[in-house]
Design a binder for these strands. Structure first.
Lengths: 191, 191
DNA sequence: CAGGTTTTGTACTGATCATTCCACTAGCGA
DNA sequence: TCGCTAGTGGAATGATCAGTACAAAACCTG
């Protein structure tokens, strides 16, 4: 019963995600969100309750999608560990052509990290998931002799994602691609 | 002739810097700036002309100060190159106790990078200065045989500052200090 | 002490902010 | 086809935004 929606909720979140990603939380107005999603104010508030809640939805969408891709790369046992790490780092160097610059998660840490404990917790959980997966993959590679077992697996995993963060900041600044590629190769020397 | 100021311009910029550093550009209101600096609106606009101009002043202050410290570390020839690099990375792991989390420059890249070409140019120049200095120091170390001359000096310098960026993002998220220290040690293995 | 000049506090501007309200519309079940 | 319910568009809401106008105040010079 009753009138059905004329829009797709999922693609509205997708559109909002891209605006927040490009522009940040504070600098994005509800008007911007209306224009980006094609929805009216009422529909946005009726569906998502607030700007902050929509931001939360958008961030979750982003994190889930990118984490899935990275977990897939990490767990692809047809590739040597070194190539899997390369794929992870490479994602920062060769983003999809019309994605906004940088990483939405890192933008959020920087902008809202000190102010929004809930979002920080969400991001921490996501980060831990990836670190754990990479740690396991590295440990497995050490067990097969593919990697020096003397190294601390968790430490290496942490290192990889820290470098990734640095690359994503560099991407936000439009650093030359060749430079970033060189950094990836340098970082990979430990593998 | 005429009435003198009752405040110190420099310490007003310092106070503004710390608010912008902690809170970002958009989320800092002129009211916040009044409270942080202890000045009235009139004095702020009379002295600094606009919020954006004050932000610019604050960012320059920050960049000049931190760049000076880092250049000093880079050029301290009493230390082996490895220790100099360690000092650079260490600054992200052990910040001064009541400084805001993270790095004001990186916060600015992330928040305003895509929107503010002038600030981006300022940051790029600053970054280049540091990269060049570190490149020279690495090349010198290679010449004395302290470091393998086969490595690309500029590439290594770039790598160091990319890792530093990653560490500073981690600091903004309050990542455990021990984890960050481990990352520093891992990154240093290339030296 | 008086004149000139800049600073300072306060009150105000118009714009924009996130959010809400309400009348209207559109579809589904009866 | 009628009535219920939920979605929609647009006009409000009051708060806050960056920036300004202006008069009173404070200091230096003469």
């Amino acid at each position: 019963m009753a009138r059905p929606r004329t829009f797709d909720e999922d693609s509205a979140v997708e559109a909002a995600m891209r605006v927040f990603w490009r522009t940040g939380y504070e600098a994005t107005s509800t008007q911007d969100l209306c224009e980006a999603t094609g929805l009216g104010r009422s529909s946005i508030y009726n569906t998502f309750t607030s700007k902050h809640a929509l931001f939360d939805r958008a961030l979750r969408r982003y994190a889930e999608r990118f984490t899935a891709v990275q977990l897939e790369a990490i767990q692809d046992s047809t590739l040597p560990i070194r190539e899997r790490v390369r794929r992870i780092l490479w994602s920062a160097v060769e983003p999809l052509p019309d994605d906004p610059a940088g990483c939405f998660v890192i933008n959020t840490i920087v902008e809202l990290g000190p102010k929004d404990a809930e979002l920080t917790a969400l991001i921490d959980r996501d980060q831990e998931l990836k670190i754990d997966a990479l740690t396991s993959a590295i440990a497995a590679a050490q067990a097969t002799g593919e990697l020096d077992p003397a190294q601390d697996a968790a430490g290496l995993a942490n290192y990889v994602f820290t470098v990734l963060g640095g690359l994503r900041v560099a991407a936000r600044r439009n650093a030359p691609r060749a430079q970033q590629q060189a950094v990836v190769e340098t970082a990979l020397r430990l593998f």
